[in-house]
C-alpha cells in the first residue's frame, strides 16, 4: 500500500500530501495516492468523502491548497486545465457532459486532438483521418449508426457512452471516469462494463463508482476515501474485509 523503496518515477500518477480547503473545510486532507502504469484504480467512499474533488484537483478544475500531483513526472498543480489535457489526462464528468446542439459526429470531431488553437480551429479540415477515427470510436461506443443524430436526443446511457468516446478519441494516457454507470439500465450497465474492459486494457484508469458489483468486475486496486483521507487501500477482497471500511461505508 505504501510506496516504500519505490521512486515516484515508476508511477504514472503520484499524489503527495494533497490538501484543499474551502473556507477552512478540508475536502481533501493530506491525501497521498499512487497509480501504476496500466492500473485500473477505483475510488469508493461515502458521499462527501472527497472523491470527485480529487478528480477536480487532478484535472485542474480545483486548485490545490498544498501538496503535489505529478503525472509522468510533470507537476499538474501548476498547469492550466487545457495544458493538463494536452499532457495526457482525460476526464469524464459525473453527469453526461456533451454538446447537445451538435451531432454525435461533431461531438467526437471537436474532441479529436488537432486544431486546438484559435487559428488551428479556423483552418481545421475534416479529412479522411478525422472521419476514420470518429467512425472507429463511434463503433466502440455503440453509436456507429447515430453519427448524424443530434446528441440531445440520445438516451442517458448513450450520452454517457458518447462522453467516454469523446475521451477515447483524445487517446489520454490517464483516463478518469466519474460514476460511468450511474443512472444506466441493467442492459446498458453490462454493455458499459464490456466497453470499459475493452478500453482499459493497457491504459491507466481512475474510476469513481458506487456499484460494488461493477467495482469488483473491473478494479485492480481500490482506494477508500473518508473525510478527505485514505481510509484503506488494496485489492477489493482486502478492502471489503477491512473493519474500518465496513464501519464507515460498506456496512450501511
Amino acid at each position: 500500500m505504501q510506496p516504500i523503496g519505490q521512486t515516484p518515477k515508476e508511477f504514472i500518477l503520484s499524489i503527495d500530501a494533497l490538501t484543499v480547503s474551502f473556507d477552512g473545510f478540508k475536502a481533501v486532507n493530506d491525501l497521498s495516492l499512487y497509480v501504476d502504469e496500466n492500473e485500473i484504480r477505483v475510488i469508493i467512499g461515502p458521499n462527501g468523502a472527497g472523491k470527485t474533488t480529487v478528480l477536480d484537483l487532478i484535472c485542474g478544475r480545483t486548485k490545490a491548497t498544498s501538496g503535489s500531483i505529478k503525472f509522468e513526472g510533470r507537476e499538474l498543480t501548476k498547469m492550466r486545465e487545457h495544458e493538463i489535457v494536452h499532457a495526457g489526462v482525460g476526464r469524464k464528468f459525473q453527469n453526461p457532459s456533451i454538446y447537445e446542439d451538435l451531432t454525435v459526429f461533431e461531438n467526437l470531431e471537436l474532441s479529436f486532438p488537432r486544431g486546438r488553437s484559435v487559428f488551428g480551429a479556423l483552418a481545421f479540415r475534416r479529412d479522411q483521418e478525422v472521419i476514420d477515427r470518429v467512425e472507429e470510436v463511434a463503433e466502440m461506443i455503440f453509436l456507429k449508426d447515430q453519427l448524424r443524430t443530434d446528441a440531445a436526443i440520445l438516451s442517458h446511457g448513450q450520452k454517457q457512452w458518447l462522453e467516454i468516446g469523446m475521451l477515447l478519441i483524445q487517446k489520454p494516457r490517464l483516463l478518469m471516469l466519474d460514476e460511468p454507470v450511474a443512472g444506466m439500465s441493467v442492459a446498458e450497465r453490462v454493455k458499459t462494463a464490456d466497453l470499459l474492459n475493452t478500453i482499459t486494457k493497457n491504459q491507466s484508469v481512475i474510476v469513481i463508482e458506487h456499484d460494488m458489483k461493477f467495482v469488483e468486475d473491473i478494479a485492480h486496486r481500490v482506494t477508500v476515501l473518508h473525510q478527505g483521507k485514505v481510509l484503506s487501500e488494496g485489492t477489493m477482497d482486502r478492502v471489503k474485509h477491512d473493519p474500518k471500511v465496513v464501519e464507515v461505508y460498506l456496512g450501511h
Binding site: 487545457h82 446542439d101 451538435l102 470531431e109 471537436l110 486546438r116 480551429a121 469523446m166
Partner: peptide, 24 residues
Amino acid sequence: SKFGRLLIAMRDREDRVRFSGYDV
C-alpha cells in the same frame, strides 16, 4: 469552420470544451 462548432459547444458546455484541451 470547426471554430463555429466550438462556439456552440462553449455556449452549451464550457467545461467540457476546456477539458477537451481548448483554452476557452
